[in-house]
Write a protein that binds this DNA or RNA. Structure first.
Lengths: 286, 286
DNA sequence: AAAATATGTTCCGCTATGCGGTACATCCAC
DNA sequence: GTGGATGTACCGCATAGCGGAACATATTTT
């Protein structure tokens, strides 16, 4: 039966088509737990995990036990709290390190961040979020305490909207559906923001979010449509509203961020080169 | 057995006490899959994964499907191969970024790497491996293509032995048992190396591995016994045998690496400060 | 050209798995 | 003390998810 035609978009957690004989739920649950750890929650207790993941206490207990045995979490016996262990590190870093857009973009991002007295980020999509791949900020910039690996919403941030604006209509459609389903009550407003962004990107090359996500934060985003394994990427400049007034964005920062994006895109002509090492069988010990 | 032409870093801690009512096996299997991806294997096919993890084809197929849906892997339809997706990144990076030993040590490590024309690494233990937390190398140094997040064996490398040397006898005991069980035939030789290292560290503050892991690689290691969430850490200098002759190590490099370690340890007086944010319940959507 | 290999996906029966309710054990605060 | 948290352990039961095999599909061999 050749019915597996659907494009593999990364459907986010939460909506499991339930009756999927292929889906390994226990794995998903375990990853839900790991996912809770971010720069905002360096350490978490079983209780917090249970609340944050909507999994039963017993289940969490088993999962944290398993993850600890495997080195993905470490347990602080004194506080009874967990934090990411050395094992977790290997996962993420491997993908980051060889990802050359970052190397190329980093110095330019730092310059612009310093110039604007704000922060500049490079993001990819992860479900209904945008995830920080690279992040530079001006030393004296105030802002949210974000860092590489953190996630921010897709629908209400400028990076997210820039991302959406760069997609083809067919790709965007299902994603918008999901956003709507995810929070129907917010949808009318969210939708307007996105449509505006699509127009803005088409006409001026950038879009904004002036307090649409966090009231006191302004930001602008520009998509980078380059052939990366993570698909479309996008840049933003973000900071306090007072630092980034609309006029400044429009006349000065937007052209600069667009320029940055253009230069990065140019520098990425020669990439690729996939090496494929053979993988030896592992003795099935156990 | 055959020559180790390709270095297999991913040997897992294969021996789990099996009958553990608390242990979630499906989760472990899924993580085994993610773990296969490293700087040596940027992309992998289902077949390679099946071989490398000793899991059945059907199981791998289900796991890669699940991981892809969740954004931890991305699938390249053309080649049929997987690579780590944006989701994976969030895991590792969160733990790395806030880990201040790295910030402190990095510049010193770079200096020493440049001076020695070799590479310098900071490692923690992950099962029976040492994992690279930070890594600096001289621009013109040849060596293994390692990077942050990669793993190398505990028992035959200098960092690993330095780590072992810094443990208390009671802690070390079970670990040594595990090493022995993991490869009984190699044990006599491995054991001698470790005992030598323990003596060396006690008497001179460092230990070496002169080709004990990879024939043409020499290295020396120094433990850093500081109160970190990852437990004991250790530094190494590593490079080609011709670059790191024993005499040079003994007279020049060892004192320098010990000095580096000492300085890092001193700088880490004022650390700690744990912030604990509350965790809001998640609407149990589903 | 098959035919032979190697690859990945799907199907399906069976059992071990892992889920969650409950009970138990601590630890706080008051 | 009691009441409210917290985390672990137990255990019955449904089902998740495992693996062998059948089925596709691509790649190479003859």
């Amino acid at each position: 039966m050749g019915r597996n035609r659907t494009i593999e978009l990364l459907r986010d957690v939460d909506d499991l088509p339930a009756d999927d004989r292929q889906f390994v739920a226990a794995l998903e649950r375990g990853l839900r737990v790991l996912r809770m750890f971010s720069s905002a929650h360096e350490t978490l207790s079983n209780g917090e995990l249970s609340r944050g993941t909507a999994l039963s206490k017993a289940t969490i207990s088993r999962l944290t036990y398993t993850l600890s045995r495997l080195g993905y979490l470490t347990h602080d016996p004194a506080s009874g709290r967990y934090r990411l262990g050395p094992g977790a590190l290997a996962l993420g870093y491997a993908s980051l390190s060889k990802f050359d857009v970052r190397q190329v973009a980093r110095p330019l991002m730092q310059n612009l961040a310093d110039y604007a007295g704000a922060s500049v980020a490079l993001c990819a999509r992860d479900g209904l979020n945008m995830i920080y791949l690279e992040f530079r900020r001006s030393p004296n910039a105030l802002g949210l305490g974000l860092d590489i690996g953190d996630r921010i919403p897709l629908a209400t941030t400028s990076v997210g909207r820039a991302y959406l604006a760069a997609m083809s209509d067919e790709e965007r459609k299902p994603l918008l559906d999901e956003i709507r389903r995810n929070d129907p009550s917010a949808w009318p407003k969210v939708r307007r923001g996105i449509e505006q962004a699509i127009r803005d990107v088409a006409e001026r090359g950038y879009c904004t979010s002036l307090g649409d996500w966090v009231p006191e934060i302004h930001s602008l985003g520009v998509p980078l449509d380059v052939n990366s394994p993570y698909g479309i990427l996008s840049f933003n400049i973000g900071g306090l509203a007072s630092t980034l007034p609309p006029r400044l964005i429009e006349t000065d920062l937007a052209p600069r961020l667009i320029g940055l994006t253009r230069r990065v895109a140019e520098m990425l002509g020669a990439s690729a080169a996939a090496e494929r090492l053979p993988v030896k069988p592992v003795k099935s010990g156990r």
